[in-house]
Amino acid sequence: MNYIFFILIAGSLIIAVFNGNIENVTNAMFEACSTSVKVAFSLIGIMAFWLGIVRIAEKAGLVKLIAKLIKPITSVLFKDIKKDSQATGDIALSLSANALGLSNAATPIGIKVMKELQEDNPNKDTATDSMCMFLGMNTAGFQIIPATVIGILAASGAANPTDIVLPTLIVTTLSFITAIIAALILKKIWRKYE
């Protein structure tokens, strides 16, 4: 992440000097600072709401139920999760929120999962295999109905705005599977060199 941060900031500044638009970049820099705080503040309410709803789902036993359903899969993919951990159910919830396109629910639940995984983490500053697997699944962007995209197509008068649903679903399913396989293989490779 140190290198990515360096490339993003230093690279942008250098390119901007050559492009002669350093003023734009400096403005973008300060604008982005206040944007990020705005994002965080708008997240407060959304996070509070979803964490509240998830808490009800937990107390009603729904999270345990989902956890039981996906246990056969998660016990293979998330080997370092402890048996009594809340994380299994919340992983299922988070992935379902993503799949259903509820992106504002996915972030709070995803962060909750990370906190639960962190509890069982012996090295608090280093990612566990489960965390890498979970984030890999998240970054693959698995989504059943890309509602916003359909909305844009429909607004522009597309004859059949939903005709992209099936190809999109195939793409996200395959990249989701790719992410899982990549995480499993990289886990082995990383072990060798650590």
Binding site: S12, A28, M29, A32, C33, T35, S36
Partner: peptide, 12 residues
């Protein structure tokens, strides 16, 4: 967000 906005603004 700062890093990404700068990247987008610099013309890369």
């Amino acid at each position: 967000i700062v890093g990404i906005s700068m990247l987008r603004a610099c013309g890369a």
